[in-house]
Amino acid sequence: MALFYLWFRLKMRLDKYLSQSTGFSRKEVKKMLHKGMISVDGEVTKDASLHVAADAHVLMEGYPVEPPGDKYIMLYKPEGFVCSNDDGTHPTVVSLIELPRADELHICGRLDVDTTGLVLLTSNGKWAHRITSPKHKTGKVYRVETADPIPQEAIEQFETGLMLASERFRTKPARLEILSEHEALVTLTEGRYHQVKRMFAAIGNRVVGLHRESVGAIELDEMLEPGEYRFLSDAEVESVQ
Rank of each mutant, 00 (worst) to 15 (best):
M1Q: 10
A2N: 13
L3K: 14
R9P: 07
L10E: 15
K11T: 15
R13S: 06
D15Y: 01
K16P: 06
S19C: 08
S19I: 04
Q20L: 15
Q20W: 10
T22A: 01
T22E: 03
R26G: 02
K31N: 13
G36E: 10
S39A: 11
G42K: 06
D47F: 01
A48M: 12
A48Q: 13
H51L: 14
V52Q: 08
A54H: 14
D55Q: 11
A56Y: 06
A56L: 04
G62F: 02
P67Q: 12
G69E: 14
G69R: 15
D70H: 10
L75E: 12
P78H: 12
E79V: 09
E79G: 05
G80V: 11
G80L: 07
S95C: 07
D103G: 00
I107G: 09
D112N: 10
V113R: 12
L120G: 10
L120I: 11
I131S: 08
S133A: 08
H136G: 01
G139K: 00
K140M: 08
Y142C: 02
T146L: 03
P151H: 01
A154R: 05
A154Q: 07
E156H: 04
Q157T: 02
F158N: 08
F158K: 07
E159T: 00
L164D: 08
S180C: 05
H182E: 05
H182V: 05
A184E: 00
T187I: 07
L188P: 05
T189V: 07
G191C: 02
G191H: 06
R198D: 07
G204W: 09
R206G: 00
V207Y: 01
G209E: 07
L210Y: 12
R212L: 09
S214H: 03
S214W: 00
A217K: 14
E219T: 12
E219Q: 14
M223V: 04
M223W: 07
L224D: 06
R230F: 03
V240M: 03
